[in-house]
Write a protein that binds this DNA or RNA. Structure first.
Lengths: 203, 203, 203, 203
DNA sequence: GTGTAATCGAGACGGTACGTCTCGTCTTCTG
DNA sequence: CAGAAGACGAGACGTACCGTCTCGATTACAC
């Protein structure tokens, strides 16, 4: 009973609601990113986003409960492509790539401002904080934790290291520079940070 | 010159200008801290601070240009007592104390929320960002940098380490946990983090 | 079964539009009346009418351009039955019946609220104002004017009266009480008002 | 002149708060009147009034809970001067002046639109309806009722007339024409209406 | 019956205005 | 005259309803 010309998706398409919805989401997320780049994070008010995206505020609030939620989805969309971790190579190499790709992501056009906005809002809105932890931090930390454990198992790392603390040591510098801005965010910085950490400070 | 620059009026000033200034500052900073502890950072509006402190908004804006400035001074006052770094001992010990005292400060009653508010506001207000860097980060990083350089000179650390990056690696984990909140902020965490960093991950 | 006078299209009409039309109109007008009785005039939004009537807003706007238009038709439907003016009797009697029937109509369940909504909307929408005047006021005033002129011709009324002003004097009290609500709308009021007017105030 | 320039009211002025308050009220009421004259009643939104008056919406809502409240006060201010009823003369003359002055008021620049807006809003907001009745209708009806009773006592009117109904008959035509707009509002109309009513229709 | 063409429900959408909130400036009055 | 009180302009917030629109499901008639 699929002779119906209006509906052709046969086997793998989920449901394809995407009427105008997807266009709206794109316009909103694009507008939010632009505004943050242009006028700082403070310029990305819900009102300005709606105006820039040519979208009504009502529609905005239908999909996202707050500015932070817009930033979260915008960031996620930007970040989606940054999941290239090399399957081959040593644990150290893989971790270096992981941290460097985060640094590169934040240094890129919109993801940096979006994440800064996100973490700023997370300080006063618990839902945002939880969302960042659950949707962004946890999966990446899980991947890195596996790499660390693999490194331990293969003798690449010392067996007595604390995985959680090592994760913090790995990723923290990137967020530290992102949020405090005392030094620029570069790939070289990420590489050197991981190298220092792996080697330690002792002679 | 006057040994006490704050108070010069000797005989004829009608009603003591310096009068309540200090009380006002105390009341405001206390109120700001309380509000942040009670209702989250979002509760500490300038209006609420003024009301709680029994101070007019006019007076508030006379001394502090923004909410971030109040938080900055409040934080500085809380942090003033946390400058106990032991002159004796090895560089590693001193750095451990330094990082652990930062962790303890943030875990204490108001300094944590104040710093979180501060960094959140710094994302959209450059003056706040600059103030944090100049008044808070720089002096502490300078002290730590001296310790690191001393450790290198005395052979405690490898001679080829990058001081700036090492500073980031040292302090970043504390801010990372403060702002992301994925794990609690404890002294043990600070100690372990420095220990891991110093020793490195390799066997 | 095509004796139905509402549907005569013989050869070229495309596809029988009349289908549910009449049911829709009934449902909408009924819903509008109910909503006005229940939640005051403010409750009868186009959205609420559509929801209550189980009709889409699209359909609503197909038949009526505005809330006022719905109210107008609803009122007209309610008012259709109130055109019983006695052919026999004196002019005074006939006018009394005419005014009293208006009062009774407005005192009935939905016609009062509908007319109040209508006149309220007429203050800011000219089409509504015009529609009330043309479709409601004018025919009734024409009938009453005939009665007045007949009364003059037959010596029942003074020959020097101004017909337009007399019409205003006759009908105004009913609308005045309907809209200002300072006193209840009763048949006795209508009767007494006409009686006072006819007799005058002088002894 | 006065040793205290800030305070001159000596014995009978109530309290004179009038800081900037009075300027704000004037600006708002003026803007509301203008907007109603220019763009019809629908143009006088709270937002437009605030913008036109150079007043923030916050201030607007501090003094008036709704658009109707603004209209009420604007109307009252316009109407304040229209209370010239001649103490001398017959009851008929006084009533004629009273009704004619109402007609003249409504025909003047802003009072007409303001009252139309007011009565329109009264249809869906009870507070407005009550306010009109208490603050506008009742006092004027009371004055007119006294005149009617005086006329009865002095033999100018028939002793068996119903005062309430007579009040309705007197004032209703003015509101009827104001709200339905089927004929213009003129002094001559008001005079003729009272004359017809007093004399009656019978020969 | 089956196809064709319309109507209809549902509701997404861009807008406008609502009424509330905080900010940062400014004015008034009191101690 | 410093400071508490708070009025004020500005403008973002989140919500409601408007009137337009697109989508599928339903339905009536033609074939």
């Amino acid at each position: 009973m699929n002779e119906n010309p209006r509906e052709t998706r046969d086997r793998d398409e989920p449901a394809a609601p995407r009427r105008r919805t997807e266009q709206v989401r794109d316009a909103v997320l694009g507008a939010a990113g632009e505004l943050m780049l242009e006028g700082g994070l403070a310029a990305a008010t819900m009102e300005a986003i709606a105006a820039r995206a040519g979208v009504s505020k009502r529609t905005l609030y239908k999909y996202w409960p707050s500015r932070g939620a817009v930033a979260l989805e915008g960031f996620m969309r930007n970040a989606a492509s940054s999941w290239a971790l090399p399957d081959g190579g040593s644990a150290v190499e893989a971790l270096t790539v992981l941290v460097a790709s985060a640094a590169r992501l934040f240094a890129g056009t919109s993801a940096g401002p979006l994440m800064r906005s996100l973490i700023a809002d997370a300080q006063s809105q618990d839902e945002i904080a939880t969302a960042i932890r659950e949707q962004w931090l946890r999966p990446r930390r899980a991947v890195a934790a596996d790499l660390i454990r693999r490194g331990v198992a293969e003798g690449e790392f010392r067996p007595d290291i604390d995985v959680e603390i090592t994760l913090d040591l790995l990723f923290a510098p990137v967020y530290y520079r992102l949020l405090l801005g005392h030094e620029p965010m570069t790939d070289a910085f990420a590489d050197a940070a991981v190298a220092h950490l792996v080697t330690g400070l002792r002679p």
